[in-house]
Nucleic acid binder design. Structure first.
Lengths: 108, 108
DNA sequence: AAACTATGTAAGCTTTCCTTACATATGTAA
DNA sequence: TTACATATGTAAGGAAAGCTTACATAGTTT
């Protein structure tokens, strides 16, 4: 069992609708504008992750403030980049610590 | 958004089938035997959590070893009790630490 | 004004899910 | 051994959920 409950795409549109309060139309429209990327089962049913749901909620909030798709896309991209950079940083830090560790125990 | 991705019941039976490799028949049967407890939407569609899926996999493994529902129920109950006890313990420990903390800063 | 954005809604169709019921192979108990 | 219990398959018929396409519309941008 894969373990990443947050990003695994297992939720169908009806539940997404429930959890976000958005209409199916709105949910699909956000896909059309390339703001979310559900997967599809072999027969065409869309599957979303909890992460997608969070993104949808953020989008809906922004849109209420008048922000539109193009800008939202920029913002989401920036956010993703930032997250990835942070993940990279963490990785490097761990590697650094490991290196330090092995240098310490070097001539064991 | 509630945060507990592992226990939130959002997955329909088709996906559970995919993820576990069990037949719908088997999945529903385990419910009949009171080994899992999916929720229902207002219209009767079953909704499972990742946690349910993990339970189903455990059940399937045990059954292959010839263990049957009655015993499985006992085992699952024991496991649940154990988990709850552990959660309790953690709570108590935290409370203990908090108490200690406030005793330390007592006459502040 | 023309084009674009965001959303609603309807039609028609396919897929998914539900319940009920019967069949069956094994295992267990009377 | 006959009878019951367990675990699973499968089929029928119906209801719910999902999909695409298309048209309508109120604002916004160009």
């Amino acid at each position: 069992m894969s373990e990443d409950y947050k990003t695994k795409k297992v939720i169908s549109i009806g539940v997404v609708k429930e959890l976000t309060g958005l209409s199916e139309r709105q949910i699909r429209y956000n896909e059309e504008r390339k703001l979310i990327f559900p997967e599809r089962t072999p027969n065409g049913t869309r599957k979303y992750s909890f992460s997608d749901i969070e993104t949808l909620v953020k989008i809906a909030e922004k849109r209420e403030e008048g922000v539109q798709s193009m800008e939202l896309k920029q913002e989401l991209k920036k956010e993703k980049d930032r997250e990835e950079t942070e993940a990279q940083m963490r990785k490097k830090m761990i590697r650094g610590q490991l290196n330090a560790h092995f240098r310490m125990n070097e001539g064991r």
